[in-house]
């Protein structure tokens, strides 16, 4: 039963779309509640992931949706 977060909001990133732009990070920058985490593992292998622990912090400001160049993000309300 114990699930940390993600009960109310599901944030998804379409990785293949996202990868088309290098070093973008814009979602991480605009998100006021730190849902996105950018990691540059090694050259040409950077990933943006969702910090599940923070998903329910989403306030639907929609800044990430507006700013994402690839329209790679979807946000679902689970209620």
């Amino acid at each position: 039963m114990v699930k940390i977060m993600g009960m109310f909001v599901k944030v998804e990133i379409n990785n293949s779309k996202c990868k088309k732009v290098k070093n973008c990070k814009i979602c991480e920058e605009v998100c006021p509640v730190e849902i996105f985490k950018f990691e540059n593992l090694e050259e040409n292998n950077e990933i943006i992931s969702v910090i599940e622990e923070n998903e329910d912090e989403c306030i639907f400001c929609n800044l990430c949706l507006e700013k994402c160049l690839q329209k790679a993000i979807t946000i679902k309300k689970l209620y």
Binding site: M1, V2, K3, I4, M5, M7, F8, D56, I59
Partner: peptide
Amino acid sequence: TRVDLVARGVILAMNELD
């Protein structure tokens, strides 16, 4: 203060405490 954020916090707390 947003009603939905308060509701989310309260329910998450109950969930974590089973």
